[in-house]
Design a binder for these strands. Sequence first.
DNA 1: ATCCTACAATAGACTTTGTCTAAGTCAATC
DNA 2: GATTGACTTAGACAAAGTCTATTGTAGGAT
Lengths: 141, 141
Amino acid sequence: MRMSDLLERLRGRGWRMTAQRRVVAEVLNGDHVHLTADEVHARAVVRLPEISRATVYNTLGELVSLGEVLEVATDKRAKRYDPNAHRPHHHLVCAQCGAIKDVHPDGNPLADLPDSERFGFTVSNVEVTYRGLCPNCAAAA
Amino acid sequence: MRMSDLLERLRGRGWRMTAQRRVVAEVLNGDHVHLTADEVHARAVVRLPEISRATVYNTLGELVSLGEVLEVATDKRAKRYDPNAHRPHHHLVCAQCGAIKDVHPDGNPLADLPDSERFGFTVSNVEVTYRGLCPNCAAAA
DNA sequence: ATCCTACAATAGACTTTGTCTAAGTCAATC
DNA sequence: GATTGACTTAGACAAAGTCTATTGTAGGAT
């Protein structure tokens, strides 16, 4: 996904393009994935010093609604934003240092939930979060 | 699991038994599962008006460390505490109203993560969260 | 090119959730 | 029933996020 693609898509959806929104989108499209809102803000400030926290939160929220970015709540701390929204994947998290990897397990967890376990819900989505220790933290332990 | 069992187990682990801890444990053992810390506090206050928020947080944290209670971070809001720690299960969450059900899907997600997708991590745990709409919210939509 | 106007951005107050600390209290042991 | 160290308390503090009133501006209309 090239940057211009994302910006084009957003414009096509009736987004008003502003310097702030462009910067937030650019920050997310780097290879530094899984940033928190504050990390996004910190990086955005480098390019556009006067951008406010509120705008970063608003823009991230809009990107999530548009389906361009995923919200990931792997730990109990800040939400993280994952621009890899167009390829389904799950997450592997280090319980010690919080490092996050995208993973693609076999199988289809949605199919593994029998009707008798659905309580009449309309189930649309599954998130699988694997937890463990990354090589670094395992070595330190 | 009877209440006295839990209290016995805690005492056996060297817990000093206090009115506050007893009340928190009792609140969690009702059939009102998946409470937030503040909900636990609210219910505890009914029985023991002077119990403080800090004590509820401390006690919940201790119960989690002891493995008697699970922390569940299904949504991005407050953590929830699940006393059903002795039977493994996953969660089904209503995206609208936040209702939570315990579910027992088939299959073994841990086995579905190939070595090539483990990045050298020592994987010890999987959480599966199903999302959708509960019957009420689906009807309202 | 300039003007308008609705939408967007800003600063900062506010809320929620959770942690920490210093001082007082009390359960378990002797 | 005295001792003592673990437990509890109130409230300050912190982190993450939301809301609001005001100011700014993108982009279409002129």
